[in-house]
């Protein structure tokens, strides 16, 4: 009999503590939210390196590429590349340059080699400005490579030997096109040499079959590197780069095979 009143009191006590527990949980939740918002204010943004979980380095070594790129740009370049959609601005802008560049100099260079040099220089300037506006590290590398290739191309075309073998200056435009293609692929190439422990023998020899409209129809790996990471990054870069700019008018053939050698230092 004496117990009869007790459970009601116990129940009341229990519900009181239940309310206290709910209040504690609400307080903890609000505390966590407040803590997060406080963290956001003082958040330190570290450098972000885009890492692909699908392909890891097979054998490795130190990287020079990251070190080279580091001081050039203040922002971490890989983050930008990872955040962007695959083939947005690069292929669209480049073809316009590619179309303009070969048309004018190709006709003039056949007659006057000196004027061709000027046209090349102006084209290079335009390329340079475009690349500087983007402030892209890989773009800067690309520009340097394009410059060296164009210089080499102009030298060879001036001496009468072109890639296409016509000797009439079309070889120069072909080299420009290839340099442009190499630049685009370089831009789309997400690769960090720091993930390789050993860079010796890290070369990937690739041939791509490009159709006249710029579509990469076939990728052939002549010789892969021991690192699956490097091989996969090359494959991804080539896939990302398709479609390439269409062939310049000097190209007569409906398709072309272009060879590249990918090394941790860049595309050769």
């Amino acid at each position: 009999m004496k117990k009869k009143g007790a459970p009601g009191g116990l129940e009341k006590t229990f519900f009181f503590w239940l309310a206290v527990a709910v209040a504690i949980h609400v307080a903890i939740f609000l505390g966590l939210v407040a803590l997060k918002s406080f963290d956001r204010v003082q958040k330190f943004k570290p450098r972000v390196v885009s890492v692909s979980l699908l392909s890891l380095p097979g054998s490795g070594g130190s990287s020079e590429k990251v070190k080279k790129n580091g001081p050039v740009g203040g922002k971490p370049a890989p983050e930008k590349v990872a955040a962007k959609p695959i083939s947005e601005p690069v292929p669209k802008q480049e073809p316009t340059v590619a179309k303009k560049v070969p048309v004018q100099p190709a006709k003039k260079t056949a007659a006057v080699p000196a004027k061709k040099e000027d046209a090349l220089a102006s084209a290079l300037d335009r390329l340079k400005k475009g690349v500087e506006q983007k402030k892209s590290l890989s773009g800067a590398d690309n520009l340097n490579m394009a410059l060296s290739r164009l210089k080499a191309g102009s030298a060879t075309s001036a001496s009468g030997s072109g890639t296409k073998g016509s000797g009439s200056g079309t070889g120069g435009s072909a080299d420009r096109y290839k340099a442009e293609v190499a630049g685009i692929i370089q831009k789309n190439w997400e690769f960090s040499g720091s993930l390789l422990r050993n860079t010796s023998g890290m070369e990937v020899f690739v041939q791509i079959r490009v159709q006249a409209n710029g579509t990469i129809a076939q990728i052939v790996f002549d010789h892969g590197s021991p690192s699956e990471y490097l091989n996969n990054s090359v494959k991804k870069a080539l896939e990302k780069s398709s479609p390439l700019p269409p062939f310049p008018p000097e190209y007569g053939s409906p398709q072309e095979w272009i060879r590249f050698v990918f090394t941790p230092d860049g595309i050769e």
């Binding site: 116990l10 006590t13 229990f14 503590w17 239940l18 206290v20 527990a21 709910v22 504690i24 949980h25």
Partner: peptide, 13 residues
């Protein structure tokens, strides 16, 4: 919530 309510209640009793 339930376990904390029980903990507090039982601790007292």
């Amino acid at each position: 919530v339930g376990s904390w309510a029980i903990i507090l209640y039982k601790f007292g009793s």
